[in-house]
Amino acid sequence: MTSFRKELKINRRGLLLGMSALATAASFTQSPGLAASNGYIHEPDSIVQFMLVSKLLVPHELDPFVGHKIYNALSDSEEGFDNTVTALQNFIMKNAVVDVEHLMPALTDVALKNSALKIISAWYSGVVHGKSGDRVVAFEEALMFKVTNDVMTIPSYAKSAPNAWNATAVPLLNMPSF
């Protein structure tokens, strides 16, 4: 009974994952104009694949524009980044991995694991560490700020009126969803 439920749950999650992948893919194919207008005329497949892998690695709302920038920066700094993403994608499919918590322990290939961590790090920090230096790919959309965005503002943005920084702090509640 238990295993049946677990299996059902996995199937449902897999279904949802597939649906979100389809939706993401659809959104890319529908907005070539957006990508083009921003100067990104990359092979859509590789971006789609990168976003799919990202979705599993980072289970939050991901900005496709930031995705483009991370993809470009990592492509510049990592040899054969497309192949790495494909390898990750294949690993996920083959092992029917449903979330990042299951992926990391299962990922025994150190190089692949490091690449996955780099992708996660880029989404959260907004910075890609390259060979010739670090590249900022996002600031406001960097996910690290979202964790506290119910009470804190992103540095350099006003929290309240001038001299109102010392107002009584709001108690922390549940982590915001983002």
Partner: peptide
């Protein structure tokens, strides 16, 4: 504008901006 009105022009959480 953004330093006060914020990057999505959402203003400050307390509504001051």
């Amino acid at each position: 504008c953004a330093s006060c009105h914020n990057y999505k022009a959402q203003g400050s959480r307390d509504g001051y901006y």
